[in-house]
Design a protein around this nucleic acid. Structure first.
Lengths: 247, 247
DNA sequence: CGACTTGTTGATGTACATCAAGGTACGTGG
DNA sequence: CCACGTACCTTGATGTACATCAACAAGTCG
């Protein structure tokens, strides 16, 4: 299960040390401190938000990996996106009235908890932060667009090359890695559900990539051996690396 | 080509007559009038925004159909979503610095033009409108999520049933129809590019649906003959019909 | 001038053969 | 027991090829 722990001050938020994220003004940090209502530790494998629910909270990820997904009633699952530090969770539930998707934790996660009811307050008092939220929503849209191209028009080989590159780069950017090695905390089944492929076919295709010596992936440690070939194969380009807001 | 025409007042905006859209306060309308910099008539078949560009404008659709898409350099195309009245175009370009997708017009379209540079002004002076933009971004995300499930986990038959239902309902909601008949201004090729299918397979699958007497589609006129069966087949549910903001 | 061919083009429809991806089954190793 | 690996067969979707049908333009003839 998940447990709440005492909140740490936003001013020493571990994410602020990462140059990927934009600097905040003191006033903004001050406000976010009042906006924040606590922290949440979600254990690997637990569920954070459920489709159809209308949670009273929004979350920012401070540590760990998660994933957004939807399921059909006959058991089919589609992973919509992976979630990494800096990502915002539950905005849909806050803005509309119901979550259209579920969120699960892949690793132990540390989340910052905000009251949905105070969101309006943020919009009226800190337009810069409101703008940041819009930025985050736009970026999510951009990732979804790219993912849609994968599922609709890329072959299995291209798809896999593409997500692996993307997840590799996102993991590095947000610091979710470990002595030069990127740690992928998900199984081939997760990848398959993300890419709309069967487990077996995902496995065969992954084999092809490592047989050709483009990647290595063993015991959750992932390495790219030949980025150039992989990039060309996937028609990949890393999306937007501008200084990035988060709340 | 496309031509600019004299703007009509936001207070008699045709969309406001449609109960689907939320009512605005006078102050809000007043502001939107100053935010609006004109109108744009885009002819069917023309391009409105191009991937990679950074347009100085954002648009709201007043009339007509369009589509968002991305293409790979070898000619493969993925339609990300269709665009209908009330939809916002170009937010990505305004918030990030570059459009990640292109936008094309399916029919003649009437667009409201806003200066991207004034967007910040909107955020600082009218938090309610800023919130509306976030709402629109969230709804787009919801549609994309659903579309991802289609491409990843639904069969061709289910996918087609699903988009047809969705487009039918969206068209009715926004009034883009004509004497009880819904007008679909796109070709089977557009559908194929939207659903990640080949043209031939799209055609065969559409035949199946009309052979089973679930739908009718001829000369751009679309009808649902058996909504119940179609809905069950697609695992379809119309997303969020709450009173809906637009700018 | 209007009416009647002819050619062109874009959307749709259908028939194959082919192939990429799926499903089941049964391995291994931690 | 669960994640990964591999073999074998099946199937859903693709690609090519060609036919139909309506819309439209050009040219021809009465």
């Amino acid at each position: 299960m998940s447990t709440k722990t005492r909140a740490c001050a936003c001013s020493d938020c571990p994410l602020r040390k990462n140059p990927t994220f934009r600097a905040f003004e003191d006033k903004e940090i001050g406000f976010v401190e009042t906006f924040k209502s606590g922290e949440l530790n979600a254990e690997a494998g637990t569920s954070i938000l459920a489709e159809g629910s209308n949670s009273a909270h929004i979350y920012t990820v401070l540590k760990g990996w998660g994933y957004r997904y939807k399921s059909l009633d006959d058991g089919r699952v589609q992973i919509l996106n992976f979630i990494l530090p800096g990502d915002l969770i539950g905005l849909q539930g806050a803005v509309m009235d119901e979550m259209g998707h579920s969120v699960g934790a892949l690793t132990d996660m540390l989340l910052c908890v905000f009251e949905r009811s105070k969101l309006w307050n943020l919009y009226s008092k800190f337009p810069a932060l409101a703008f940041d939220i819009t930025w985050l929503a736009s970026r999510e849209e951009q990732l979804l667009d790219e993912h849609l191209v994968s599922l609709g028009r890329r072959t299995a080989l291209e798809r896999i090359a593409f997500v692996l590159l993307l997840l590799n780069d996102r993991a590095i950017e947000t610091g979710e890695c470990d002595e030069g090695n990127v740690v992928f905390p998900f199984t081939q089944q997760h990848l398959a559900d993300c890419l709309g492929l069967s487990l077996v076919h995902t496995n065969k295709t992954l084999r092809k990539l490592s047989d050709r010596n483009l990647i290595g992936w063993k015991d959750q440690r992932f390495v790219i051996h030949d980025r150039e070939k992989l990039t060309a194969m996937a028609k990949y380009e890393y999306p937007n690396s501008a200084p990035r807001p988060f709340i």
